[in-house]
């Protein structure tokens, strides 16, 4: 059980990265971005292209860092992948969502557009790479460290937790200390008021998509390192992402972080009693319970 909880925290930290981006977008633009899961897929596969396609061609060595399962290739691919997903996410906004926003379409139309976008991303991934499961580095042994309480954890997973922690701290500093971070928080509170106060809300929206996309990309790559890549991975993340977002209260970044961890632990612990394939269903049940009991989320957040 202790081991499942630890694995749950690992999975939960990946969900949290997605959920934080989702809640930022939800808070500022007020629509359910159903494409968020597939942005994670996009990140994972962009890194896959870099690690197995471009970097070997450039001659970047294939050595791994100590007992981790990856090396310099991934070290470069990770930030580049995050950046590319940020660009994809901003482009989606410019091409698909912005025209709808300008026409003052309802939030449901925007959500539908996002659904279409999510399928377009997934179909492109499936056309390019097919429906097989992929690994960044096939055939590598993945030794585990033995911890007390019969917990086995792989060095990759420790590294993953550190990466997520770093990203969350960076985001916290960005939101609290920089001018753009403050503008983002102001826009999230009240977009009209922010606009009259002279905040360039279009710039804020671009930054929001960029940050949300980059975090989703990071989450996708980390999941690829920890487990494997598949075209449908983003879709499977969608329910836990939304459950985490609603649990934490929409627009509440710290709520999304906690919500992500809760969902990760709930999904992993459920495998002790249910088939692992039921994981998305577990996320769904938890979400329904939250909606019945406390639809505004544990930490309040925007009105339900």
């Amino acid at each position: 059980m202790a081991e499942l909880i630890v694995y749950g925290i690992v999975l939960g930290s990946i969900i949290a990265l997605g959920a934080i981006g989702l809640t930022l977008v939800y808070g500022i633009l007020r629509f359910a971005n159903f494409a968020h899961g597939d942005l994670m897929t996009a990140g994972a596969y962009i890194a896959f292209f870099l690690v197995t396609g471009l970097f070997p061609w450039l001659g970047i060595p294939d050595t791994t860092f100590g007992s981790l399962s990856f090396g310099w290739r991934m070290a470069f691919a990770f930030p580049i992948g995050m950046f590319c997903v940020a660009v994809v996410s901003i482009l989606l906004d410019r091409i698909l969502y912005r025209p709808l926003r300008l026409k003052r379409s309802g939030s449901v139309i925007l959500a539908m557009s996002a659904l279409g976008a999510s399928f377009i991303i997934r179909m492109i991934v499936l056309i390019l790479w097919g429906a097989d499961y992929r690994l960044y580095r096939p055939g590598v042994l993945r030794p585990a460290i033995q911890l007390p309480l019969e917990i086995k954890i792989r060095p990759d997973q420790v590294f993953l937790l550190l990466v997520v922690l770093t990203l969350v701290i960076l985001l916290y500093l960005f939101l609290q200390r920089t001018k753009m971070g403050k503008a983002m928080r102001a826009t999230s509170d009240n977009m009209e008021l922010a606009r009259v106060s002279g905040i360039d809300t279009e710039r804020v929206i671009i930054w929001t998509w960029g940050i949300g996309g980059a975090l989703a990309g990071a989450g996708g790559i980390l999941y690829g390192i920890d487990v494997q890549l598949h075209g449908g991975m983003g879709w499977n993340f969608l329910l836990p992402l939304f459950a985490a977002t609603i649990l934490g209260g929409i627009g509440n970044m710290y709520g999304a972080l906690i919500g992500g961890l809760v969902m990760g632990v709930a999904q992993q612990v459920s495998t002790a009693y249910l088939l692992p394939t039921y994981k998305p269903a577990v996320a769904f049940i938890v979400m329904i319970v939250i909606l019945l009991v406390r639809p505004q989320g544990i930490f309040g957040g925007r009105r339900a």
Binding site: F31, A32, F34, S107, V108, A111, L238, L239, F242, I246, P280, A281, A283, F284, M287, I288, L291, P295, A304
Partner: peptide
């Protein structure tokens, strides 16, 4: 909110 129904129906 209207989008909660959407998420629940996906679920």
């Amino acid at each position: 909110r209207e989008d909660y129904l959407a998420i629940a129906t996906i679920g």
